[in-house]
Amino acid sequence: MDETVAARIKQEIDDNQVVLFMKGTPVFPQCGFSAAVVQILSHLNVKFKGVDVLQDPGIRQGIKDFSNWPTIPQLYVKGEFVGGCDIIREMFQNGELQDFLQTNGIEAKPAA
Protein backbone atom coordinates (compact mmCIF):
# COMPACT_ATOMS: atom_id res chain seq x y z
CA MET A 1 0.00 0.00 0.00
CA ASP A 2 1.03 3.55 -0.73
CA GLU A 3 2.80 4.88 2.35
CA THR A 4 1.20 8.30 2.23
CA VAL A 5 -2.24 6.65 2.16
CA ALA A 6 -1.35 4.52 5.18
CA ALA A 7 -0.05 7.61 6.95
CA ARG A 8 -3.27 9.49 6.25
CA ILE A 9 -5.42 6.66 7.55
CA LYS A 10 -3.22 6.43 10.62
CA GLN A 11 -3.59 10.16 11.14
CA GLU A 12 -7.40 9.98 10.98
CA ILE A 13 -7.64 7.21 13.53
CA ASP A 14 -5.06 8.84 15.79
CA ASP A 15 -6.72 12.25 15.68
CA ASN A 16 -10.29 11.10 16.14
CA GLN A 17 -11.59 8.80 18.84
CA VAL A 18 -14.36 7.42 16.64
CA VAL A 19 -13.87 7.26 12.88
CA LEU A 20 -16.23 5.75 10.34
CA PHE A 21 -14.80 5.03 6.91
CA MET A 22 -17.91 5.11 4.79
CA LYS A 23 -19.46 5.76 1.41
CA GLY A 24 -20.87 9.26 1.39
CA THR A 25 -21.07 11.57 4.37
CA PRO A 26 -22.89 11.17 7.70
CA VAL A 27 -25.52 13.58 6.37
CA PHE A 28 -25.78 11.95 2.94
CA PRO A 29 -24.67 8.33 3.10
CA GLN A 30 -24.37 6.77 -0.35
CA CYS A 31 -24.84 3.16 0.68
CA GLY A 32 -27.33 1.35 2.89
CA PHE A 33 -24.66 -0.37 4.98
CA SER A 34 -22.88 2.91 5.71
CA ALA A 35 -26.22 4.54 6.47
CA ALA A 36 -27.06 1.81 8.98
CA VAL A 37 -23.91 2.45 11.00
CA VAL A 38 -24.40 6.23 10.86
CA GLN A 39 -27.91 5.70 12.16
CA ILE A 40 -26.70 3.61 15.11
CA LEU A 41 -23.97 6.09 16.06
CA SER A 42 -26.37 9.00 15.73
CA HIS A 43 -28.98 7.21 17.79
CA LEU A 44 -26.40 6.80 20.56
CA ASN A 45 -25.32 10.44 20.20
CA VAL A 46 -21.76 9.36 19.54
CA LYS A 47 -19.52 12.04 18.10
CA PHE A 48 -17.63 10.60 15.17
CA LYS A 49 -15.66 11.60 12.15
CA GLY A 50 -16.93 10.29 8.83
CA VAL A 51 -14.37 9.71 6.10
CA ASP A 52 -15.95 9.48 2.66
CA VAL A 53 -13.99 6.87 0.73
CA LEU A 54 -15.80 7.78 -2.48
CA GLN A 55 -13.90 11.07 -2.48
CA ASP A 56 -10.58 9.29 -2.55
CA PRO A 57 -9.76 6.10 -4.47
CA GLY A 58 -6.48 5.80 -2.53
CA ILE A 59 -8.28 5.64 0.80
CA ARG A 60 -11.05 3.49 -0.64
CA GLN A 61 -8.62 0.68 -1.45
CA GLY A 62 -6.13 1.68 1.23
CA ILE A 63 -8.49 1.21 4.16
CA LYS A 64 -9.28 -2.31 2.98
CA ASP A 65 -5.60 -3.22 3.00
CA PHE A 66 -4.94 -1.32 6.20
CA SER A 67 -7.64 -3.18 8.13
CA ASN A 68 -7.37 -6.44 6.23
CA TRP A 69 -11.11 -6.11 5.68
CA PRO A 70 -12.57 -6.07 2.17
CA THR A 71 -15.74 -4.05 2.67
CA ILE A 72 -16.94 -0.57 3.64
CA PRO A 73 -18.09 0.74 6.15
CA GLN A 74 -15.40 0.24 8.78
CA LEU A 75 -15.54 1.60 12.28
CA TYR A 76 -12.47 2.52 14.31
CA VAL A 77 -12.59 3.38 18.00
CA LYS A 78 -9.46 4.73 19.64
CA GLY A 79 -7.32 3.45 16.83
CA GLU A 80 -8.76 -0.04 16.97
CA PHE A 81 -10.77 -1.67 14.20
CA VAL A 82 -14.14 -2.69 15.62
CA GLY A 83 -15.92 -4.04 12.58
CA GLY A 84 -18.17 -3.48 9.61
CA CYS A 85 -21.92 -3.05 9.37
CA ASP A 86 -22.98 -6.54 10.52
CA ILE A 87 -20.74 -6.47 13.57
CA ILE A 88 -21.77 -2.99 14.64
CA ARG A 89 -25.43 -3.84 14.17
CA GLU A 90 -25.09 -7.04 16.18
CA MET A 91 -23.16 -5.27 18.95
CA PHE A 92 -25.73 -2.51 19.07
CA GLN A 93 -28.65 -4.92 19.26
CA ASN A 94 -27.29 -6.79 22.26
CA GLY A 95 -26.08 -3.65 24.04
CA GLU A 96 -22.43 -4.53 23.65
CA LEU A 97 -21.63 -1.47 21.56
CA GLN A 98 -22.78 0.96 24.23
CA ASP A 99 -20.68 -0.87 26.83
CA PHE A 100 -17.69 -0.99 24.55
CA LEU A 101 -17.84 2.74 23.81
CA GLN A 102 -18.34 3.66 27.45
CA THR A 103 -15.46 1.43 28.50
CA ASN A 104 -13.38 3.42 26.05
CA GLY A 105 -14.51 6.67 27.64
CA ILE A 106 -16.82 7.64 24.82
CA GLU A 107 -20.29 8.90 25.60
CA ALA A 108 -22.96 6.73 24.06
CA LYS A 109 -26.50 7.34 25.18
CA PRO A 110 -29.72 7.52 23.27
CA ALA A 111 -31.49 10.85 23.61
CA ALA A 112 -34.13 10.68 26.34
Binding site: W69, P70, V82, G83, G84, I87
Partner: peptide
Protein backbone atom coordinates in the same frame (compact mmCIF):
# COMPACT_ATOMS: atom_id res chain seq x y z
CA UNK B 1 -14.06 -12.91 18.03
CA UNK B 2 -16.41 -11.46 15.44
CA UNK B 3 -13.71 -9.71 13.46
CA UNK B 4 -11.59 -12.86 13.21
CA UNK B 5 -14.60 -14.94 12.12
CA UNK B 6 -15.63 -12.58 9.38
CA UNK B 7 -12.03 -12.14 8.20
CA UNK B 8 -11.87 -15.90 7.83
CA UNK B 9 -15.00 -15.94 5.66
CA UNK B 10 -13.74 -13.02 3.58
Amino acid sequence: NRVARQRRVY
